[in-house]
Simulated assay, not measured.
Amino acid sequence: MASVASQVVLHPVTTHSLKVLSTTIGRDKLYRAIQYFARFFAWLLLSRGYKVQAARWNALKSHLALGRKLMRLGKFMENAQGVLKALNAHGDPGERITAIGRQIGYLGYLSLDNIVWANSIKFFNLMPSTAQKINKRSAQFWFTGIVFSIAHGLLRAGRLANEVKKLQSQTLGEKSLETERDLKLQHLQVAREAVRYQFIIDILDVWIPATNIGLVNFNDGILGIFGLITSLMALRQQWLK
Protein backbone atom coordinates (compact mmCIF):
# COMPACT_ATOMS: atom_id res chain seq x y z
CA MET A 1 0.00 0.00 0.00
CA ALA A 2 2.84 2.38 0.89
CA SER A 3 4.52 1.50 -2.42
CA VAL A 4 1.37 2.37 -4.40
CA ALA A 5 0.98 5.66 -2.54
CA SER A 6 4.63 6.46 -3.16
CA GLN A 7 4.24 5.78 -6.88
CA VAL A 8 1.22 8.10 -7.08
CA VAL A 9 2.73 10.92 -5.00
CA LEU A 10 6.13 10.81 -6.71
CA HIS A 11 4.82 10.11 -10.22
CA PRO A 12 6.21 12.51 -12.91
CA VAL A 13 2.66 13.63 -13.77
CA THR A 14 2.06 14.58 -10.13
CA THR A 15 5.37 16.45 -10.02
CA HIS A 16 4.59 18.30 -13.26
CA SER A 17 1.08 19.14 -12.03
CA LEU A 18 2.51 20.67 -8.86
CA LYS A 19 4.92 22.76 -10.95
CA VAL A 20 2.07 24.06 -13.11
CA LEU A 21 -0.14 24.82 -10.10
CA SER A 22 2.73 26.57 -8.31
CA THR A 23 2.38 29.37 -10.88
CA THR A 24 -0.33 32.03 -10.63
CA ILE A 25 -1.37 31.41 -14.23
CA GLY A 26 -1.65 27.67 -13.68
CA ARG A 27 -3.86 28.07 -10.62
CA ASP A 28 -5.95 30.75 -12.34
CA LYS A 29 -6.68 28.55 -15.35
CA LEU A 30 -7.59 25.59 -13.13
CA TYR A 31 -9.89 27.74 -10.98
CA ARG A 32 -11.40 29.24 -14.14
CA ALA A 33 -12.13 25.77 -15.52
CA ILE A 34 -13.90 24.79 -12.29
CA GLN A 35 -15.73 28.14 -12.19
CA TYR A 36 -17.17 27.73 -15.68
CA PHE A 37 -17.99 24.08 -15.13
CA ALA A 38 -19.88 25.18 -12.01
CA ARG A 39 -21.68 27.81 -14.10
CA PHE A 40 -22.74 25.18 -16.62
CA PHE A 41 -23.68 22.59 -14.01
CA ALA A 42 -25.71 25.07 -11.95
CA TRP A 43 -27.65 26.00 -15.09
CA LEU A 44 -28.23 22.32 -15.87
CA LEU A 45 -29.50 21.62 -12.34
CA LEU A 46 -31.77 24.67 -12.38
CA SER A 47 -33.21 23.69 -15.76
CA ARG A 48 -34.19 20.35 -14.21
CA GLY A 49 -35.66 21.89 -11.06
CA TYR A 50 -32.87 21.07 -8.58
CA LYS A 51 -32.71 24.51 -6.96
CA VAL A 52 -30.94 23.51 -3.73
CA GLN A 53 -28.17 21.63 -5.53
CA ALA A 54 -27.83 24.44 -8.08
CA ALA A 55 -27.35 27.00 -5.28
CA ARG A 56 -24.29 25.07 -4.07
CA TRP A 57 -22.66 25.21 -7.52
CA ASN A 58 -23.63 28.86 -7.97
CA ALA A 59 -21.91 29.66 -4.69
CA LEU A 60 -18.78 27.83 -5.83
CA LYS A 61 -18.83 29.76 -9.12
CA SER A 62 -19.21 33.12 -7.34
CA HIS A 63 -16.45 32.49 -4.81
CA LEU A 64 -14.01 31.26 -7.47
CA ALA A 65 -14.76 34.32 -9.60
CA LEU A 66 -14.07 36.59 -6.62
CA GLY A 67 -10.88 34.71 -5.75
CA ARG A 68 -9.62 35.00 -9.31
CA LYS A 69 -10.16 38.77 -9.18
CA LEU A 70 -7.83 38.88 -6.18
CA MET A 71 -5.20 36.94 -8.14
CA ARG A 72 -5.43 39.52 -10.94
CA LEU A 73 -4.71 42.56 -8.75
CA GLY A 74 -2.09 44.72 -10.46
CA LYS A 75 -2.03 42.52 -13.58
CA PHE A 76 -3.11 45.53 -15.66
CA MET A 77 0.49 46.77 -15.45
CA GLU A 78 1.51 43.89 -17.74
CA ASN A 79 -0.89 45.25 -20.33
CA ALA A 80 0.40 48.79 -19.78
CA GLN A 81 3.86 47.47 -20.63
CA GLY A 82 2.35 45.63 -23.58
CA VAL A 83 0.94 48.89 -24.96
CA LEU A 84 4.35 50.59 -24.80
CA LYS A 85 6.09 47.59 -26.39
CA ALA A 86 3.53 47.47 -29.21
CA LEU A 87 3.94 51.21 -29.82
CA ASN A 88 7.70 50.78 -30.20
CA ALA A 89 7.51 47.56 -32.19
CA HIS A 90 8.33 47.29 -35.89
CA GLY A 91 6.48 45.27 -38.48
CA ASP A 92 3.08 45.16 -40.13
CA PRO A 93 1.06 48.32 -39.24
CA GLY A 94 -2.20 46.38 -38.99
CA GLU A 95 -0.71 43.90 -36.54
CA ARG A 96 0.76 46.74 -34.47
CA ILE A 97 -2.56 48.62 -34.31
CA THR A 98 -4.53 45.52 -33.32
CA ALA A 99 -1.88 44.58 -30.76
CA ILE A 100 -2.16 48.05 -29.21
CA GLY A 101 -5.96 47.83 -29.22
CA ARG A 102 -5.86 44.41 -27.58
CA GLN A 103 -3.54 45.59 -24.81
CA ILE A 104 -5.59 48.75 -24.18
CA GLY A 105 -8.77 46.66 -24.00
CA TYR A 106 -7.29 44.29 -21.44
CA LEU A 107 -5.72 47.21 -19.57
CA GLY A 108 -9.12 48.86 -19.13
CA TYR A 109 -10.79 45.56 -18.25
CA LEU A 110 -8.28 44.54 -15.58
CA SER A 111 -8.06 48.05 -14.10
CA LEU A 112 -11.82 48.21 -13.59
CA ASP A 113 -11.81 44.58 -12.45
CA ASN A 114 -9.69 45.67 -9.46
CA ILE A 115 -12.37 48.23 -8.53
CA VAL A 116 -15.09 45.58 -8.91
CA TRP A 117 -13.17 43.30 -6.52
CA ALA A 118 -12.63 46.10 -3.96
CA ASN A 119 -16.36 46.87 -4.02
CA SER A 120 -17.24 43.17 -3.70
CA ILE A 121 -15.28 42.81 -0.45
CA LYS A 122 -16.73 46.14 0.84
CA PHE A 123 -13.34 47.88 0.76
CA PHE A 124 -15.16 50.49 -1.31
CA ASN A 125 -18.86 51.14 -0.88
CA LEU A 126 -20.08 52.16 -4.32
CA MET A 127 -23.66 52.99 -5.13
CA PRO A 128 -25.37 50.00 -6.79
CA SER A 129 -25.90 52.00 -9.99
CA THR A 130 -22.21 53.00 -10.05
CA ALA A 131 -21.07 49.42 -9.43
CA GLN A 132 -23.33 48.24 -12.25
CA LYS A 133 -21.85 50.83 -14.64
CA ILE A 134 -18.29 49.82 -13.73
CA ASN A 135 -19.14 46.15 -14.22
CA LYS A 136 -20.58 46.87 -17.67
CA ARG A 137 -17.66 49.11 -18.66
CA SER A 138 -15.25 46.38 -17.56
CA ALA A 139 -17.07 43.87 -19.77
CA GLN A 140 -16.97 46.34 -22.68
CA PHE A 141 -13.20 46.67 -22.36
CA TRP A 142 -12.89 42.88 -22.15
CA PHE A 143 -15.00 42.48 -25.30
CA THR A 144 -12.93 45.13 -27.09
CA GLY A 145 -9.67 43.41 -26.13
CA ILE A 146 -10.85 40.05 -27.47
CA VAL A 147 -12.16 41.56 -30.73
CA PHE A 148 -8.78 43.22 -31.33
CA SER A 149 -7.09 39.92 -30.44
CA ILE A 150 -9.21 38.13 -33.07
CA ALA A 151 -8.34 40.77 -35.67
CA HIS A 152 -4.66 40.54 -34.73
CA GLY A 153 -4.78 36.76 -35.09
CA LEU A 154 -6.36 36.97 -38.55
CA LEU A 155 -3.80 39.49 -39.78
CA ARG A 156 -0.88 37.51 -38.37
CA ALA A 157 -2.23 34.25 -39.79
CA GLY A 158 -2.46 35.84 -43.23
CA ARG A 159 1.09 37.18 -43.04
CA LEU A 160 2.49 33.84 -41.86
CA ALA A 161 0.65 31.98 -44.63
CA ASN A 162 2.17 34.31 -47.23
CA GLU A 163 5.64 33.80 -45.78
CA VAL A 164 5.18 30.02 -45.92
CA LYS A 165 4.09 30.17 -49.58
CA LYS A 166 7.01 32.42 -50.43
CA LEU A 167 9.52 30.05 -48.84
CA GLN A 168 7.93 26.96 -50.39
CA SER A 169 8.09 28.51 -53.87
CA GLN A 170 11.84 29.13 -53.63
CA THR A 171 14.13 26.82 -55.57
CA LEU A 172 17.46 26.36 -53.81
CA GLY A 173 20.36 24.37 -55.15
CA GLU A 174 22.57 24.18 -52.12
CA LYS A 175 21.89 21.69 -49.35
CA SER A 176 22.74 24.19 -46.59
CA LEU A 177 20.25 26.73 -47.95
CA GLU A 178 17.53 24.09 -48.17
CA THR A 179 18.18 23.09 -44.56
CA GLU A 180 17.94 26.73 -43.48
CA ARG A 181 14.68 27.12 -45.40
CA ASP A 182 13.24 23.98 -43.82
CA LEU A 183 14.09 25.33 -40.36
CA LYS A 184 12.35 28.63 -41.16
CA LEU A 185 9.31 26.73 -42.43
CA GLN A 186 9.25 24.70 -39.24
CA HIS A 187 9.31 27.85 -37.09
CA LEU A 188 6.57 29.41 -39.22
CA GLN A 189 4.37 26.32 -38.87
CA VAL A 190 4.79 26.40 -35.08
CA ALA A 191 3.84 30.09 -35.08
CA ARG A 192 0.78 29.40 -37.26
CA GLU A 193 -0.38 26.65 -34.90
CA ALA A 194 -0.04 29.03 -31.93
CA VAL A 195 -2.07 31.69 -33.76
CA ARG A 196 -4.81 29.18 -34.63
CA TYR A 197 -4.92 27.91 -31.05
CA GLN A 198 -5.32 31.42 -29.63
CA PHE A 199 -7.92 32.25 -32.29
CA ILE A 200 -10.10 29.33 -31.13
CA ILE A 201 -9.80 30.52 -27.52
CA ASP A 202 -10.75 34.08 -28.51
CA ILE A 203 -13.66 33.08 -30.75
CA LEU A 204 -15.22 31.13 -27.87
CA ASP A 205 -14.38 33.59 -25.09
CA VAL A 206 -15.75 36.64 -26.91
CA TRP A 207 -19.35 35.52 -26.29
CA ILE A 208 -18.94 35.84 -22.51
CA PRO A 209 -18.42 39.63 -22.40
CA ALA A 210 -20.73 40.00 -25.41
CA THR A 211 -23.51 38.49 -23.30
CA ASN A 212 -22.56 40.62 -20.28
CA ILE A 213 -23.00 43.83 -22.27
CA GLY A 214 -26.19 42.67 -23.97
CA LEU A 215 -24.97 42.14 -27.54
CA VAL A 216 -26.14 38.52 -27.46
CA ASN A 217 -28.23 36.51 -25.03
CA PHE A 218 -26.52 33.16 -24.51
CA ASN A 219 -27.56 31.20 -21.43
CA ASP A 220 -25.22 30.10 -18.63
CA GLY A 221 -25.08 26.58 -20.03
CA ILE A 222 -23.53 27.69 -23.32
CA LEU A 223 -21.22 30.23 -21.68
CA GLY A 224 -20.18 27.67 -19.08
CA ILE A 225 -19.18 25.17 -21.77
CA PHE A 226 -17.30 27.84 -23.76
CA GLY A 227 -15.45 29.01 -20.65
CA LEU A 228 -14.61 25.44 -19.61
CA ILE A 229 -13.18 24.62 -23.05
CA THR A 230 -11.03 27.76 -23.26
CA SER A 231 -9.83 27.31 -19.67
CA LEU A 232 -8.69 23.77 -20.37
CA MET A 233 -7.01 24.92 -23.59
CA ALA A 234 -5.15 27.67 -21.71
CA LEU A 235 -4.24 25.21 -18.95
CA ARG A 236 -2.83 22.86 -21.62
CA GLN A 237 -0.63 25.72 -22.89
CA GLN A 238 0.71 26.24 -19.40
CA TRP A 239 1.25 22.49 -18.99
CA LEU A 240 3.31 22.32 -22.21
CA LYS A 241 5.47 25.26 -21.09
Rank of each mutant, 00 (worst) to 15 (best):
L167S: 12
R39V: 09
R96G: 02
L223N: 03
L188K: 15
Q237P: 06
G227L: 00
D92N: 15
E193Q: 13
Q132A: 13
I150C: 08
N217Y: 10
A5F: 09
W142F: 06
G26H: 02
Q168H: 08
W239A: 01
M77A: 13
L183E: 15
A151K: 10
G153T: 01
R181F: 05
I200N: 00
S47I: 01
F141S: 11
L235F: 14
N125Y: 04
G158C: 09
T144L: 15
I104R: 13
S62Q: 15
K133M: 08
G224F: 00
E193A: 12
A89Q: 13
G26F: 05
G214Y: 05
G101S: 07
K166H: 12
Q35M: 13
A55M: 13
L64P: 05
H11I: 03
K69M: 11
E174L: 10
V216E: 11
L215A: 07
L70V: 06
Q103M: 10
S120Q: 12
D220I: 01
K122N: 14
D182W: 14
L232E: 00
L66Y: 04
S6R: 08
D220Y: 02
E163R: 12
L46V: 02
V206N: 15
I146R: 15
T130G: 12
K175R: 11
R181M: 06
A157R: 07
A194W: 05
F37G: 03
W142Y: 06
V20S: 00
A139F: 08
F37M: 02
Q237E: 14
K51G: 02
Q103I: 00
V216K: 07
T179A: 12
R68M: 00
A2V: 04
F123W: 14
V147L: 14
A118W: 12
D220S: 07
T130S: 15
L73I: 08
V147A: 13
R236V: 01
F148D: 01
L18E: 11
L46Y: 09
I134A: 07
E163K: 15
K51I: 01
V116Q: 06
F124G: 01
S22F: 01
F141A: 08
S62L: 12
V4F: 14
L18T: 06
V206L: 13
M233Y: 14
M127I: 04
G91P: 06
V195Q: 15
S149K: 02
R39Q: 11
E163Q: 15
D28H: 11
S129L: 13
K175D: 12
A191P: 05
A5I: 05
L235Q: 05
R192P: 04
A210C: 10
W207I: 03
I134P: 05
K136Y: 09
K122P: 02
K122A: 14
S6G: 08
N119P: 04
D92S: 15
L223E: 03
L87R: 14
E95W: 04
L167C: 09
H11L: 06
F37Q: 00
K29F: 07
D205Q: 06
T24R: 12
N58K: 04
V116G: 03
S176A: 11
N135K: 13
K85S: 10
V164P: 04
G26C: 02
L155S: 09
T230G: 02
K241L: 04
G91S: 05
R236P: 00
V116T: 09
E193F: 14
W239N: 01
S138D: 05
L172M: 09
R192H: 09
I203R: 11
S129D: 15
K75W: 09
V195C: 13
K136I: 06
